[in-house]
Every structure is written in C-alpha cells, then in structure tokens.
Amino acid sequence: MVVVAELEIPANAFDLGRLSQVTEGIHIELERVVPIGTDGVMPFFWATGPDTESFDAFEQAVRGDDVVEELTAVARVDHRVLYHVVWSDTAANLTAVLVASEATILEAYGDDPWRFRLRFADHRGLREFHNYCLDHDVAFRVERIYTLDEEQDAKYNFDLTPEQRSALTLAVEHGYFGVPREVSLQEIADELGISQQAASERVRRGAETVLQSVLLSQSASDLD
C-alpha cells in the first residue's frame, strides 16, 4: 500500500538545503512533483528573494559549489526565480537516500529546517529510507505518516464535527450562503431542533474550518 511521510530535515543534512543557506533572505521550494530517476533528483526549484542583488549573490555561491555542475535561471517572475540545477557526482547524503529508497518527492520547501512530503510504494520503501538515513547520517523528524486512503478521507472530512457538518450541509443545501439569502438562521435552527445561537456557532465554526483547510493548507506557497 502506498505510504506518504511528512518529515522535517535540517538544511545542512542535504545539498539543496545547505545551498539555500548561502544567501540570507532566499527561500526555496521545489517546483513540482519529480519522480526520482527521471531527471535527476530535485532538478527544478523556485527561489524567492528580496531583490536582484540577493539572487546574483545566490547564483554565484551556488555555481561555485562542488556539488553543482550547472545552474540555469529558467524564468523570473517578480521576486521569484525558477532554476534548473544539474548535480555533480559529488552530491550525496539525502540525494543518495532518495534514489536508493525509490521515493517520490511530492513537496519540499523551507529555510531551516526543510519540510518534505515523500511518497513510497509501500512500508518497505519507508523502512529503507529510514535505514539509509541512519547509514548516511541524515537526521530527520517524522511529523506524519499515512496511506493514500487515509489522506483521501481526511481531504473531504476537513476535521468537522458531525454537528458542524450537518448544520453546514443544511445551510448550503437551503441557500443560506446565497445572494440573496434563501433561508434564515432561525429556520436552520428549527430544522435541526436547536437554538439559533447554537446553529450560528455550528455554521460559523464549520465554515471557518473548511475555509482554513482549503485556503490556509500547509503548502509551500502558503507558508512562503
């Protein structure tokens, strides 16, 4: 069964993380999902910085590092630059671990520490990743481990209580959020058999929970 692991890894434990520390004010995140072995490891990343001088200093420092063969600025958008990097044969530690454990990087971003979301074909792959990290002295902290089925269930549950879900579903179905509003809060309360105040709290808190889950999810762009 496919397993997803969310981890924290110190920046100095892997090549891209260490390079992200060479220039103050530069924040890095991987650009997209890149299966290990198709185009190297971590070949594209976005860098966000305060000004042109910061990017110039960053590029100079990165190109002068032994672990990098080539660094190319692919696109520049406002204060963000998309880079393509070719790692040299000297690149090791986490890079070697990811290749050996056949992990897929779903998401990675950070300053220090970095946060990774990795997908493994099964628990065996995750165990191999853990063992390789031990062998290569790569420290990490596990935040969460779950299967795709568990992720799918959580995605549509939004951590709502049953009472909040009932109230919010009723409000949506009857047009409470419509313009103009098609049902009053008192009518929702009457159908649920609760007070208007209780209905208000369930609808408000339920709506806030859903909006936070959708709009303020823990993605790289949100945390930038």
Rank of each mutant, 00 (worst) to 15 (best):
E31D: 15
G49K: 04
E102R: 10
L118M: 06
D39G: 01
L185M: 10
D51H: 11
T72N: 01
D65G: 04
S195I: 05
Q164W: 03
D122I: 09
T72P: 00
V3P: 06
A75W: 00
R115K: 15
L30D: 08
G25H: 07
G110M: 02
S20T: 07
R76F: 05
D111E: 14
H123D: 15
T209A: 15
W87A: 03
H27P: 00
Y132Q: 15
S20I: 09
I36W: 07
L16V: 10
G125T: 04
L94M: 03
S20Y: 01
E191D: 08
N12L: 07
F14Q: 03
Y156G: 11
P162S: 12
V22E: 08
G25Q: 10
F177W: 05
Q197M: 08
D190A: 12
S200T: 05
D65E: 12
E151K: 08
V33I: 15
N157I: 00
M1V: 12
L16G: 05
F177P: 06
N157A: 15
D111Q: 14
S195N: 02
G49Q: 03
G193K: 07
H123Y: 14
D65W: 05
S184N: 04
T104C: 12
R63Y: 06
T147V: 08
F177L: 08
A75H: 11
S195W: 04
V97C: 02
I26W: 03
T169Y: 09
G206E: 06
A121G: 14
I145M: 02
D39M: 06
D149E: 09
W46F: 10
P43M: 03
T104A: 08
S88Q: 07
P113D: 08
V138S: 02
F177A: 11
Q164L: 05
L170N: 09
E24S: 11
E31H: 13
A96T: 13
L211N: 01
D39E: 09
Q218Y: 10
D111W: 12
Y146I: 01
I188L: 09
H84F: 04
A207T: 14
A11D: 01
L16F: 12
P35D: 10
G206Q: 04
F58N: 02
D66I: 00
E8M: 08
S217L: 02
F158E: 00
R18T: 10
R115Y: 14
E187C: 09
R117M: 10
A5Y: 00
T23N: 00
A47Q: 05
D65H: 14
T38K: 11
E208I: 15
N12F: 00
S184K: 04
A207G: 11
E24A: 13
W114M: 06
L215M: 12
